[in-house]
């Protein structure tokens, strides 16, 4: 076989192997519909809890409807919850020897992660669609036109792409499916120490800057801006440059965790 014919074949395999592994995840959803539905509906439950139970007690700085303030925060939280799914799937394969089987097959090695990434992105896109519909039902809407709304959706999925790599890296480091509990717990302090549920101005002075600079806050603030929803109206640098930060943070996370994941994956053979 010549090197000329080898390169296109490798590329073709990388694509087809990725699709086969994405199909595997979709078969999982078809086999476990209850898990899929509960996963999709959990953020809806959160919207109802915060929107109707706590919402009355939370004031939006500069006025505005709390549910309209909350929804972009919940969109971003839905993306953040996704890190658990990425972690659980990769850790389960690594712990059970499935990753080793993949590595002993004549398949494209990159497909193990690209297949995971594509499946997770589809799953999160479905989750986001459910949340957008849920938003409409509780009175949230985008007010700046479709183009801005699509840009906001793009930023949310960009955050999810970044978190895929965080999940894959942690899973390859820990390799313990049961440790997903730690992530399930950690996602809450990270979520609450942001502008997703309440405005940072209402937090203690030492906590507010942490919340403002939280990568999650950048995406949430940018989405509020693009959807035309009430924001937290801060005058800090982070508040003024939300859209730029909502691009920069995920790019930085990918720049750190993508090489780390690739290194970890290679280290499986050391």
């Amino acid at each position: 076989m010549s090197t000329l014919s080898l390169a296109p074949r490798r590329l073709r395999w990388a694509v087809s192997d990725t699709l086969v592994l994405t199909g595997r995840s979709m078969s999982h959803w078809a086999r476990q519909p209850a898990e899929l539905i509960i996963g999709l509906l959990f953020p809806v439950l959160m919207v109802l809890m915060f929107g109707y139970l706590f919402g009355g007690a939370i004031a939006v700085p500069g006025g505005g409807d709390y549910r309209e303030f909350l929804l972009p925060g919940m969109f971003a939280m839905t993306m953040a919850f996704g890190v658990e799914a990425s972690y659980a799937a990769v850790a389960a394969d690594a712990a059970r020897g499935v990753t080793d089987r993949f590595r002993s097959l004549p398949m494209a090695r990159s497909a193990v992660v690209t297949g995971r990434a594509l499946a997770d992105l589809l799953h999160s896109a479905a989750g986001l669609a459910v949340m957008l519909a849920c938003g409409w039902l509780v009175g949230w809407q985008w007010r700046n036109g479709l183009a801005h709304a699509l840009a906001a959706v793009g930023l949310l999925l960009l955050l999810r792409v970044a978190l895929i790599w965080v999940g894959i890296h942690l899973a390859l480091v820990l390799r313990r499916p049961e440790s997903v509990m730690v992530l399930q717990i950690l996602v809450w302090p990270v979520g609450f120490t942001s502008n997703a549920f309440v405005a940072p101005q209402t937090m203690p002075g030492w906590l507010a800057p942490i919340a403002e600079w939280n990568p999650l806050s950048a995406t949430v603030a940018a989405c509020r801006e693009l959807f035309g929803n009430p924001g937290w109206g801060g005058d800090s640098f982070a508040a003024q440059h939300a859209v730029a930060l909502a691009v920069a943070w995920p790019v930085l996370l990918v720049a750190v965790f993508l090489p780390l994941s690739v290194r970890r994956y290679r280290q499986l053979s050391r």
Binding site: R24, R31, G97, V98, S104, L105, P106
Partner: peptide, 29 residues
């Protein structure tokens, strides 16, 4: 040129027997 059976039964628990073998067959192109 090889087949490997490791110490763990490296199969997908969620999928059926046929889905498992079809998956690995597809990954063999």
């Amino acid at each position: 040129a090889i087949g490997l059976v490791g110490q763990h039964a490296a199969v997908d628990d969620v999928l059926t027997g046929r889905q498992n073998l079809t998956l690995f067959g597809r990954l063999h192109h």
